[in-house]
């Protein structure tokens, strides 16, 4: 029988997985930010990020960031503020707060995702930039 996974072990697995995922994201992010060297190409990329599929990915990214940050705070609380006996409660509080933040993100991001799904256009930008135009 596998060793039972309780709160602490679950938090650890999540923390490690989200941390490593964020490192991968950071590599990709540094690449995409490097396109600032060419404004048109940067704007094109940002417009692409306004498409349904990327909005969905962004929501996932928000979830990963929030999970890592809040659990990071939990670990710090255990180390420095003696929260060790209350770690499970702290974890559930973090889950609660995290859910609220992700819900807030979902309210902003999901409408575009649903639009994309219903129109079948997952990768078409919902914004465009008109270079050289005037306001």
């Amino acid at each position: 029988m596998r060793y039972r996974i309780r709160t602490g072990a679950l938090a650890f697995i999540l923390h490690r997985a989200t941390g490593l995922a964020l490192v991968l994201y950071l590599f990709v992010h540094i690449f995409s930010v490097s396109r600032l060297a060419n404004p048109a190409s940067f704007n094109e990329e940002m417009a692409l990020y306004s498409s349904a599929l990327f909005k969905f990915v962004e929501l996932g990214l928000l979830g990963v960031v929030v999970a890592h940050v809040l659990n990071g705070a939990r670990i710090i609380a255990v180390d420095f503020w003696g929260a060790s006996r209350k770690q499970a409660t702290v974890f559930y509080v973090a889950v609660g707060v995290g859910t609220l933040v992700v819900l807030y993100g979902a309210i902003h991001l999901l409408p575009a995702v649903f639009d994309g799904i219903s129109s079948g256009q997952l990768l078409s930008p919902s914004y465009e930039v008109i270079h050289g135009g005037g306001h």
Partner: peptide, 25 residues
């Protein structure tokens, strides 16, 4: 890595992770 399996298992209910953290700090 403060996984807490030790505290869940300890039959003496010792605050193991806290003591380890105190050593670290």
């Amino acid at each position: 890595h403060t996984i807490f399996n030790c505290m869940d298992a300890c039959p003496q209910d010792i605050n193991i992770t806290d003591y380890i953290s105190q050593l670290k700090t």
